[in-house]
Amino acid sequence: MEKFTKSFPSKPLGAKTAKPWALAGVVGSGNLEVLMERGSKPADAMECHVETSIPGYKASWLAALADFAHHYPAGGTKVTINDQGAPPVLVNLRLRQAYDHLTKGDK
């Protein structure tokens, strides 16, 4: 297992979201779950906590998370990830799904 925490600069999230938290994905082989919660401080940073079963890929993780924080206004969110070996492209997809559920609801 490898565990790390880092905040990334990101434009602040809109004042209103559909719900206070959103979950995307499931902890299964080659998959991950992303929990995205609003209300984290400061408002211009995305706070990330990652726990992965595959050690040694911290650089890829940080790049994927930084990329998401750069492209989406996710400042003021706390992102917690439980990972079981998801590839970077899936990490990006789950982040976008969680963000979509948080801002627009599950529909």
Binding site: L23, E33, N82
Partner: peptide, 21 residues
């Protein structure tokens, strides 16, 4: 007990297996 409560398995964590919220 929704995911933000983070009530996860203490055993899986000890065994180095990923937990779920």
């Amino acid at each position: 007990l929704p995911p933000p409560e983070r009530i996860t398995s203490p055993y899986l964590a000890q065994l180095g297996i990923p937990v779920s919220f």
